[in-house]
Design a protein around this nucleic acid. Structure first.
Length: 688
RNA sequence: GGGCCCGUAGCUCAAACGGAUAGAGCAUCGGAUUUCUAAUCCGAGGGUUGCAGGUUCGAUUCCUGCCGGGCCUACCA
């Protein structure tokens, strides 16, 4: 709604500037509005564009603003435009009309067709989580999964078709290390490992073992030979070691799915590295990469015998440029430029094996339907809601199911991976572009975010010895290798216990399972909100004290606002949803005019205006791949509501017309807050 | 050495494309008519936005340099 009117006004501005000043639409930003003036009484939209035009038109900003306001005249849906300050143009919407439309939850019917922005179409692939299946998930993985899942929800809110993938590196060194731990350190048999894998928190067993293996390598570097041998056996396949690796990684993967399911995070497909290897995705990609001249074969230097490409972000060096301008620089010279050694990324090693960037290039060609090969599929995990999660397999697998959904071959992809992988991600994008798939490269977004670290205090609480240096830091990086971190399930359990304590104290009258359910919703609300309130590029220094807070800028605060809104209706003998449907016509335009006009109505009007912004905020979140705006929006709605709640008693209101209006205000805000929270993956308990 | 990111109140963080008086939460202190439950609300104190320049009507935001911090920079995945 908010966005809708903004676009209408933007368009009118653009038309006016073109016809009056002859300013080309390309000559300035069409999207010229700032969000909102600093104070509600100044209006609902602000345009600072007159400042920018002042020099160009050789007039004062104030004069230009006045001309624009006079020239544009009446715009449908708006009450007035006015000039403020040194040249701001502030627009006030027609509040009664706006509110009536918002209450009906529909967009105004335009008398003239609206210009449709070129909406992106086609299927979107979001990949997130991608946890190594060799140990329990930790807080860092939670941030990834919550960001990813929320982004999925945002895209779906915006009407996009989305497929969710979780890439499983089941053949890497990390899985190999745990295999080494079971076989070489603990000397366990296949059967013993199998029995252990069936235990409820097998991932915790692996967590500890993985840390021990790392220490074992530290103690004697010769032990690393065990890793190399194991890794080789796993990649080879069809042997006992590979079978054990598969057993372990599959069991841990199931645990990860269970952990994420606790947070309402689901996946559609789990592509595994083992299939990328066994189905020879790389061979297909390698052929294309060589044909396109993307890779060069090094015949000398430290990377002699390797196929390399230019590392993303490395500029062509001076020396390379000089070589480039050498006499042989003719049109038919297709010899790729020499890449300096520092800028070389090894894709294929001198022993002929491919590194992970190479595999990733092949995998991403598959995502865009450019590889000419496909996985086989089988069902792997069924969620309580009967949704099936599929996993990759080989055609020979008896469980392979040809009746599978169509995966891959998408129009657009988002990879939720932390910022440490930026260079690798950009190298894959560069490879796609160099292959001639520029359009795919443009639709490849690395959804990059900063890591979760621990505060020194938190680390000490967990029992870790810190150096003096570490104690002085603002945060300490988690390390799976050292077993240093907060496990996801532990955090959830702690949150649930803390929420349960509050619920028990407040609602002793409720049954046990009911209280458990509420505590669970609150814990998830707190956790998901916590992970979303920080902007992506901010390192989260995790601390139990902050994460366990249920007051102020938190998920439970927002949930509580909804509960309170619901309570008003319940005590009034009404159902808020029914009220929205039935009461639509009961508030007359005259009533809206009466209760929303004038500066005295500003504080209530603010609730309506904020309620109208959901789709606007969702758009911002998607465009900037920044879900934090959504958390901000939820907080603003909750905050406005709570202040309103205190200030305006509703059920005791004697003026029936006004009471209806106040109820409508609550109903609309409640509806929007529930929507926003749902998009964040947060549900609202019946009572709190 | 090269690349990317960060530095804002005591603490943790906001401030979309440069915009109007830099805002929240926590913590501290002081309050809220026995009301639609206080997981709430109201108020107070707290800022030279790391430093120095530059660009312009306007800079927390853009540019340059410096200081401090983080991550990446393996023929490991």
């Amino acid at each position: 709604m908010y966005l809708y009117l903004q676009r209408r006004l933007d368009r009118r501005m653009a038309e006016f500037l073109l016809s009056t000043y002859g300013l080309d639409q390309d000559a300035f930003y069409v999207d010229v509005a700032v969000e909102q003036p600093p104070r509600i009484e100044l209006g609902d939209y602000a345009f600072p564009l007159a400042f920018g035009l002042a020099k160009r038109l050789r007039k004062s900003p104030r004069k230009i603003a006045e001309e624009i306001v006079a020239g544009i005249g009446v715009v449908e849906g708006f009450a007035k435009l006015e000039v403020a300050g040194a040249g701001y143009i502030n627009a006030h919407v027609d509040r009664p009309e706006f509110a009536a439309t918002l209450l009906r939850d529909e967009l105004p019917k335009p008398k003239v067709p609206q210009p449709n922005l070129p909406a992106r179409t086609g299927k979107v692939l979001v990949e997130h989580s991608s946890i190594n299946p060799n140990k329990a998930a930790h807080v860092g993985h939670l941030r990834n999964a919550i960001l990813g899942d929320t982004f999925v929800r945002l895209l779906r809110f915006a009407g996009r078709e989305v497929a969710v993938q979780n890439y499983i590196d089941n053949t890497g060194a990390q899985v190999a290390d745990v295999v080494v731990g079971f076989l070489n350190i603990e000397k366990k048999t296949h059967a013993q490992i199998e029995a252990l894998a069936a235990t409820p928190r097998f991932d915790y067993v692996c967590w500890d073992l993985y840390a021990r293996v790392s220490q074992w390598y530290e103690d004697d570097k010769a032990n690393l030979q065990a890793r190399a041998a194991t890794l080789h056996a796993i990649e080879e396949g069809n042997n006992e070691t590979a079978a054990i690796a598969d057993l372990i990684s599959t069991a841990v993967l199931k645990r990860h799915l269970e952990t994420m399911d606790r947070l309402d995070i689901e996946y559609d497909f789990l592509p595994r590295e083992s299939e990328i290897l066994h189905l020879h995705f790389w061979d297909a990609a390698f052929t294309k990469l060589k044909e396109a001249g993307v890779l060069t074969y090094e015949t000398e230097g430290k990377n002699k015998g390797c196929w390399v490409m230019r590392r993303a972000g490395t500029a062509v060096s001076k020396k390379e440029k000089e070589n480039d301008e050498a006499p042989s620089n003719s049109a038919e010279d297709t010899t790729p430029e020499r890449i300096s050694e520092d800028a070389q990324k090894v894709i294929v090693r001198s022993n002929g094996t491919v590194g992970y960037v190479g595999k990733d290039i092949a995998y991403h060609m598959w995502k865009f339907g450019l590889l000419g090969r496909d996985f086989s599929y089988r069902k792997f995990y069924r969620y309580p809601n009967a949704h099936d999660c599929w996993i990759s397999t080989i055609p020979a697998d008896p469980k392979a199911d040809t009746n599978h959904p169509h995966f891959g071959d998408v129009a657009e992809i988002y990879n939720v991976i932390d910022t440490r992988q930026s260079e690798a991600q950009n190298t894959v994008i560069d490879a796609l572009r160099a292959l001639g798939h520029g359009e795919a490269a443009d639709r490849y977004t690395h959804f990059s975010y900063e890591m979760v670290a621990l505060t020194p205090r938190c680390a000490e609480e967990l029992g870790y010895q810190l150096s003096v240096e570490d104690k002085g830091r603002s945060f300490i990086e988690v390390s799976g290798r050292k077993g240093f971190g907060v496990k996801a399930d532990d955090l959830l359990d702690t949150l649930i216990a803390a929420a349960r304590k509050e619920v028990d104290a407040r609602h002793p009258e409720l049954g046990d399972s009911e209280r458990a359910g509420i505590a669970n919703q609150i814990a998830i609300g707190a956790l998901r909100y916590f992970m979303l309130k920080f902007t992506k590029q901010s390192v989260i220094a995790f601390d139990f004290k902050d994460a366990l807070s249920f007051e102020g800028d938190t998920g439970p605060y927002a949930q509580y606002a909804v509960v309170r809104a619901t309570n008003i209706f319940r005590k009034g003998g009404l159902d808020p949803e029914t009220f929205l449907q039935d009461e639509t016509n009961r508030i007359s335009p005259e009533d809206f005019t009466q209760y929303l006009t004038g500066d005295s109505a500003n504080d209530i009007w603010e609730l309506w205006l904020a309620s109208s912004k959901t789709s606007y905020v969702v758009g911002q979140c998607i465009a900037t791949t920044e879900p934090a705006y959504l958390a901000k929006h939820a907080f603003q709605l909750a905050q406005l509501f709570n202040a309103f709640y205190h200030r305006y008693p509703i059920l005791s209101e004697t003026d029936e017309g006004r009471k209806e209006f106040l109820l409508a205000t609550v109903a609309v805000l409640r509806r929007e807050l529930i929507r926003v929270l749902a998009t964040m993956g947060i549900t609202v308990p019946p009572v709190m």
